[in-house]
């Protein structure tokens, strides 16, 4: 078991990171900490993809020295997936940050429970 984990140490770390981020996103009360958790969670997945996509001794799939067989190169798709994932993650973070700003301006706190408490007393929110 331990040896398996040691051989796949990058994947193990990636899953641990995913777990840390996931629990932070779920259980932290502070909105900004939640967002940091979300980014850690996504980073875990990207690390998993990147480490799976890399095979030691092989090169990026750009032919420069005339080597044509596929076994000499790595698969470029996982790297492409990581890039796409980063773009998605950045846009989601942006929209969540802007929502946090809007909520902070209204309730003057970043604690989500506190926001609920204050929203109950606000007259305009019925």
């Amino acid at each position: 078991m331990i040896t398996h984990l040691w051989i796949n140490n990058e994947e193990a770390v990636a899953i641990i990171l995913f777990g840390i981020g996931f629990t932070m996103l779920l259980f932290q009360k502070n909105l900004l900490k939640k967002l940091i958790g979300m980014n850690i969670m996504d980073t875990g997945v990207f690390l998993f993809l990147a480490s799976m996509g890399y095979i030691e001794g092989r090169k990026a799939p750009i032919i420069t020295d005339g080597v044509m067989e596929a076994a000499a190169y790595i698969n470029p798709v996982p790297a492409g997936l990581v890039l796409t994932g980063i773009v998605v993650s950045v846009s989601v973070t942006a929209i969540m940050l802007s929502l946090s700003v809007r909520l902070y301006k209204r309730y003057h706190t970043l604690n989500i429970d506190e926001m609920y408490e204050r929203s109950r007393h606000a007259a305009e929110d019925r």
């Binding site: 996103l25 909520l103 929110d125």
Partner: peptide, 19 residues
């Protein structure tokens, strides 16, 4: 305010799901 709060909660759950 309530809608924005609901949206944040909705997004957090959805981000967990997407992850």
């Amino acid at each position: 305010g309530r809608t924005t709060l609901a949206a944040v909660r909705y997004m957090i759950l959805n981000l967990l799901g997407s992850g």
